[in-house]
């Protein structure tokens, strides 16, 4: 059984080759993604950043099997995104926490396990652990309406982790939150990444957030959506909010900003 071992070490968690996606409407076609190549190492943290229309969210949705590409191949741990999704090995967090309002936080976090058919006692025990991991202990019985935006997003993250995914896709999860809440959730995200070693692909508008969290920062440009530059981020781990005080941090932010500016020149 040498092959599975080989698969586990050498195969990238995400392998995108020559991916293109064209949105066709009645009178025109938009090249949302054009010839995208991207490999993401298992257990690493990658951010996708770029101006609106650069296709970063589209790319994330293709990875999550929410969109089908027009051409090219996508493999997640060597398998089609659909197979990974059907095995519930993908976690996805959207900008909107999207917690059904009639479910308690516990029932919301346990939802993917419930859909999988995990017995109630099991799934609730697992959900409680995750609720603890994201710092929502004590709010198991609360309804989403009773929680703040940041707390709702924590619950959404816990839910995305409930099936123990190999790949966690985050689509601007903190975009609607204030800066202080955002910092705290970034900290928690770093912690979650360290504890679970899940591969993370994060779509963000904030270069500072990307530099703080990532191993690699993928800068994208619009029209057509494509990758313009990939920055390696070798800031020491574990990352802390204090990581932002390092000179290297500022250097990377500058580098990222200039790469982004070249992208905005296309707008």
């Amino acid at each position: 059984m040498a092959e599975p071992a080989l698969r586990d070490t050498a195969m990238p968690a995400v392998d995108v080759r020559n991916l293109s996606l064209v949105y066709r409407s009645r009178d025109r076609a938009v090249n949302a993604l054009s010839n995208v190549d991207l490999q993401v190492e298992r257990g690493s943290f990658v951010s996708l950043i770029g101006p609106s229309g650069c296709g970063k969210s589209t790319l994330l949705r293709v990875l999550g099997d929410l969109l089908a590409p027009t051409s090219g191949t996508v493999l997640l741990d060597g398998r089609a995104p659909r197979a990974e999704r059907l095995d519930r090995r993908i976690g996805f967090v959207f900008q909107d926490p999207a917690l059904p309002e009639w479910r308690t936080i516990l029932a919301n976090v346990a939802l993917p396990l419930e859909l999988r058919g995990t017995p109630r006692a099991d799934r609730e025990a697992q959900a409680r652990e995750l609720i603890d991991l994201v710092g929502l202990t004590g709010f198991e019985g609360a309804y989403p309406r009773q929680l703040s935006g940041g707390m709702r997003q924590r619950a959404a993250i816990a839910r995305a982790l409930s099936t123990k995914p190999r790949l966690l896709l985050l689509d601007e999860p903190f975009g609607a939150l204030d800066q202080i809440t955002r910092d705290r959730l970034n900290l928690e995200l770093m912690h979650i990444h360290e504890v679970t070693r899940v591969t993370v692909v994060l779509v963000t508008h904030s270069i500072r957030e990307a530099v703080l969290l990532s191993d690699r920062i993928v800068v994208m440009t619009p029209r057509p959506g494509r990758i313009s530059r990939i920055l390696e981020d070798r800031l020491p781990r574990p990352r802390r909010l204090q990581t932002r005080d390092l000179p290297d941090y500022e250097d990377l932010v500058r580098l990222g900003n200039s790469a982004l500016e070249r992208g905005y020149a296309h707008v």
Binding site: F94, R116, R159
Partner: peptide
């Protein structure tokens, strides 16, 4: 978006 969540959870 909730529909997307259900879709992701197969």
């Amino acid at each position: 978006v909730v529909m997307d969540v259900f879709h992701i959870a197969a």
